[in-house]
């Protein structure tokens, strides 16, 4: 049981990394570069969209590049 949970978590590691690290990283880069975001979008949402643009393909292909 424990093994199955760990294996599933491991398989989801790109998604976990995208949410846990890339999303706030992209948001903070946007904030610090003072970019004006479209539609008054909050930096965190923009960060999530940018992170997911990298994360979803990585999750499906098993590699980031």
């Amino acid at each position: 049981m424990q093994k199955v949970v760990l294996r599933r978590l491991y398989k989801l590691s790109p998604m976990i990394f995208g949410l846990g690290f890339l999303t706030p990283l992209a948001a903070q880069i946007l904030q610090s570069s003072k970019v004006t975001l479209p539609f008054g979008m909050p930096p965190l949402l923009a960060g999530l969209l940018i992170a997911m643009a990298f994360t979803i393909p990585a999750q499906l292909r098993g590699r980031w590049v």
Partner: peptide, 18 residues
């Protein structure tokens, strides 16, 4: 290591952690 990076990122220090 990942949890440390996540914690730093969500407390406003993602760029430094990266």
């Amino acid at each position: 290591w990942f949890l440390t990076l996540f914690t730093m990122a969500w407390t406003g220090h993602a760029i430094e952690a990266a």
